[in-house]
Amino acid sequence: MKFIDETKILLEGGKGGNGLISFNFIKNKSNLIPNGGNGGNGGNIWIKCNKKINTLINFKYKKNFKAQNGKNGKNFNKKGKNGKNLFLEVPIGTKIKDIKNNIWYKELKKNNDKLLIVKGGLGGLGNKNFKKKNITYSDIYKGKIGEKKYIYIKIIIFSEIGLLGLPNSGKSTFLSKNSNSKTKIDNYNFTTLYPELGITFLTKKKKFSITDIPGIIKNSYKNKGLGIKFLKHLKKTKLILYIIDITNFFIYKNNIKYILKILFNLKKYKMKLFNKPKWIIINKIDKISNIKIIKIISLILLKLKINLPIYKISSIKKKNNNKLIYDIYNFLN
């Protein structure tokens, strides 16, 4: 399923039904008694959170939404039926903006949270409300038009752990091996095209969420590559894991730039994100000797000039994964 995290849509409340002009004729009397019922109100449009949704894909092809119109009033003082309300479902972490008035609604943070965005029009009045029997048809009988708004919707994924790294560093493998995610894994750059969300279960009650975003490359903050577009989805994380492919560490002249490159992009993008707690995860240790692993870690500690926790794992072989997962859980709790 394609990941869509922002869109614009047009919403329109249902039109109110017309009131009815109708009279009840009483035999042997000259009176005509008004008995026209009121029109039903038009339906409203609500936006509601659904925890089972994590993308705005439902709005990719359909951009205009209209609630049901109210029914016209009937004789014998019967009111027309109200139009049905329309509920549009969005993920948790959705923010909505009224584009014309430049107003942001409150963020939808919990499952089943909802916002009333547009109201349907009121139904017109039937002539049962008036004593004069010869009143002429006027606007008061007509149902009102529903509200109409053009809105901008965006989502920010809520996740406790964020994964960062260069393309093909093993982030997708880490996510698939340590969570319920079924993310695609392959041996080429940019396998991850959109953010992927997974839940890690230590027990039924002990769990935490992880988000993997596309790989960060040089000058990502200038909109190069894929990662910068989705860095915003790390805003709500409590801990960021930098996944490093140790097998590529000696290919370049100074691979400490791997880490510095990511830190630099975070700093340029948003300082608050840069200041979040960070751990370094040395991945794919099953493919390199212990002597080289020790040398690389010493190099990181010497040149990075930032005191960060360092873990060495093999995601695919699940080596040292359990300790890391339990340490993450303890950090969060």
Rank of each mutant, 00 (worst) to 15 (best):
K119P: 10
G16Q: 10
K149D: 03
N219T: 12
F59H: 01
I285P: 03
G39W: 02
Y152F: 13
K149Y: 10
K142Y: 14
V118M: 15
L197R: 15
N255G: 01
I306F: 14
I256F: 09
K144S: 13
L56K: 01
D327H: 04
K71P: 05
L301P: 15
N44K: 12
K133V: 15
T55G: 12
K182H: 09
G19C: 05
N129S: 14
N101D: 08
K268D: 12
Y326C: 04
P195Q: 09
Y242R: 09
I92M: 03
N129H: 14
G73E: 02
I310G: 04
I280Y: 05
G39R: 07
G120K: 10
K84N: 13
F25H: 05
N35A: 03
K222E: 14
K319F: 08
L163H: 02
K229V: 01
F158H: 07
Y329N: 08
I316M: 13
L231C: 02
G19Y: 01
K305A: 06
G198H: 04
L56I: 15
I210N: 06
K184T: 15
I156P: 05
I161F: 08
I216P: 02
G215T: 07
N255P: 04
K84F: 05
K235Y: 07
S176A: 03
K66T: 09
T191C: 06
I117F: 07
K218E: 10
Y242S: 13
I156Q: 14
F201I: 14
K171I: 09
I185H: 00
I33S: 15
I9Q: 06
Y242W: 03
I256Y: 00
K2I: 12
N127S: 14
I291H: 10
I296H: 05
K100Q: 05
Y141I: 11
L20M: 11
L32G: 11
N254G: 01
E196R: 13
P277C: 08
L56N: 12
N187Q: 00
S315Y: 13
K292M: 11
I213Y: 08
G121W: 13
M271L: 08
Y152N: 12
D139A: 09
I9V: 07
L304R: 15
K182N: 05
N28L: 13
N111Y: 13
K206E: 10
N50K: 02
I210K: 10
L115K: 02
L164Y: 07
N255L: 05
N111T: 15
N85V: 06
K317S: 02
D212G: 09
L116D: 09
I99E: 06
I153G: 06
N38H: 11
N275Y: 12
S169W: 03
N28F: 04
K63L: 05
K287V: 00
I26W: 04
S209A: 01
G83N: 03
L115C: 02
K257I: 10
K148Y: 11
S169A: 07
S289C: 13
K218C: 10
G17C: 00
Y311P: 07
N102G: 00
I199Y: 02
I291Y: 10
K207D: 07
L302E: 15
N50M: 03
K232M: 13
G123F: 11
S220R: 11
P195D: 15
